[in-house]
Design a protein around this nucleic acid. Structure first.
Length: 457
RNA sequence: GCGCCGUUGGUGAAGUGGUUAACACGCUAGUUUGUGGCACUAGUAUGCGUGAGUUCGAUUCUCACACGACGCCCCA
């Protein structure tokens, strides 16, 4: 048997519904913030990630899916979304768009050659948003607020925003140097990993799990002390805007991001959910003012955010968030002989076009088994088709909860079901407005409830 | 890349170096001559991740590999 590739998943059933729901919330949220959807290729020139994400990052050096295509081109499956967006921004000269800044979002699969564990797969799906062409701290705060709002809209109760500033490139470098100097004399007292980190990524020593209690670590210089005045001022403004938007956050000087292109604002958002594995960071982002220029575009200040949909779905499940996912059907049609089957085909067609969720029998089961199937599907109504009713132009229709059965003429069947299902059983429709904002009785298809409650006069 | 644990049917699983691999759920059919969801009865694995080795004989022991779970590194 051919198995799926390591670290990949088949998503179906309820899980697929959760994913789809998340996508819908994302689209709705992005519409409100006026970001436009953008798709870029899943593979790009290898060089893009080397120059964009950074030669020294693990994502590029150890975890990238590289290959050569038949024309000998060096190709890499994208490990993250920002580099591709920036490439497209430059290539399509979006910096010349009269509508500035450019606000876009993406939602797609990324690939990293890693050892899978909880919350970490080789194929992962990320939603991300970017503002290209704004240097205003307000835009940093907008990105963070949008991220927080997304998590809240999805029903996550406890999330924590960790905020930090790396400063501009000069202060970032100065800090790094200071840190190496500081740790160097004491590095023997640290764990093996930290000894390696010293040259490679000294900032990582700060959030080492092993050496957390080390006094030397506790007294290490802080990023914020190395910010120049401009950087500090910018960082304060970001916080000011977050306060105005009433977004909770905590300053965490140990937040460092894994990608080289970040400067100034960086943040991570973690979920505090019982049962979450060690990878509880849902998303993160920050400012990357140098990247566009580094990839041969004009100097362009940018800020962005990305979140893993898989982790998000996991958090939602662990929180046992009740999502508005449709898990039942309106009507199940039962039949036994061929004439009745044709009748079922006819009725299913009519009722589906009228907007009802209809299912029926396809495997030749007996009536008893068909009833079981109707129960499994949570059918609100069942309807056993029989030849006599057919001749009389009517159907026996049974409410599957109350067990009441009515004999209804075909002429009024649609109105009957509309009444029972949309008015009698669903409270959402009692207020005179459908969930999409249309008044009942108005013809519309935007929310999938094209059969909204008709006005009763 | 490193560490630890695991891999038995559609599902959850028990179990043994040697005839028919428990049990439960599910599914299908019957009791009920076209109205179910309960109950009872019957049926439902050419097979115990893959390959090799030890053995008269392995699902059970050994090794390798693959995959899964969790952790480190790193990241979403």
């Amino acid at each position: 048997m051919i198995q799926r590739q390591k670290g990949c998943h088949d998503i179906y059933g309820r899980e697929a519904k959760v994913w789809k729901y998340i996508d819908q919330v994302i689209d709705a949220l992005m519409e409100k913030y006026n970001y436009t959807y953008m798709r870029t290729p899943i593979f790009e020139a290898t060089e893009l990630f080397h120059r964009g994400v950074g030669e020294t990052t693990d994502i590029v050096t150890k975890e990238s899916y590289d290959f050569e295509d038949k024309g000998g081109r060096k190709i890499t499956l994208r490990p993250e979304g920002t580099a591709g967006i920036v490439r497209a921004y430059i290539e399509n000269k979006m910096y010349g768009d009269p509508n500035q800044p450019v606000k876009v979002y993406y939602n797609g699969t990324m690939y990293r050659y890693e050892r899978p564990q909880s919350g970490r797969d080789r194929e992962l799906t990320q939603f991300g948003m970017e503002i290209l062409g704004s240097d205003d701290p307000f835009s940093d705060a907008e990105i963070i607020s949008a991220a927080v709002n997304l998590y809240k809209m999805l029903g996550l109760k406890e999330i924590k925003v960790n905020l930090n500033s790396l400063g501009d490139n000069a202060s970032r470098e100065a800090y790094r140097k200071a840190l190496v100097e500081y740790f160097k004399p004491h590095i023997k007292d640290f764990c093996e990993d930290c000894q390696e980190r010293l040259e490679k990524n000294p900032l990582r020593i700060l959030d080492c799990k092993v050496d957390q209690e080390n006094e030397i670590l506790k007294n290490a210089p802080k990023t914020l002390d190395y910010l120049n005045e401009e950087s500090r001022d910018r960082f304060e403004k970001v916080q000011e805007f977050l306060d105005i938007m009433q977004i909770d956050y905590s300053i965490n000087p140990n937040i460092v991001r894994g990608l080289d292109y970040y400067n100034h604002t960086v943040f991570e958002i973690e979920a505090k959910v019982e049962g979450f594995g060690s990878n509880n960071v849902l998303g993160g982002g920050g400012r990357y003012n140098g990247l566009v220029n580094q990839l041969d575009g004009p100097e362009t200040p940018c800020v962005g955010f990305a979140t893993g949909i898989g982790r998000l779905a996991m958090a939602i499940e662990l929180e046992q968030v009740k999502l508005p996912i449709v898990e039942d059907i309106d009507l199940f049609l039962l039949y036994v002989n061929d004439d009745e089957k044709k009748y079922a085909a006819y009725l299913a067609q009519e009722l589906r076009l009228a907007g009802f969720i209809v299912d029926t029998e396809y495997t030749g089961r007996g009536l008893k088994a068909q009833f079981k199937q109707a129960d499994r599907l949570n059918a609100k109504f069942t309807c056993v088709l029989n030849s006599e009713d057919l001749n009389n132009n009517e159907v026996h229709i049974k409410n599957n909860q109350t067990k009441e059965e009515d004999i209804i003429s075909l002429d009024v069947l649609i109105y009957y079901l509309d009444e029972k299902i949309n008015a009698g059983m669903a409270e959402d429709f009692m207020e005179g407005e459908c969930e999409c904002g249309h008044h009942h009785g108005e013809e519309h298809e935007c929310c999938g409830h094209g059969h909204c409650h008709h006005e009763e006069e």
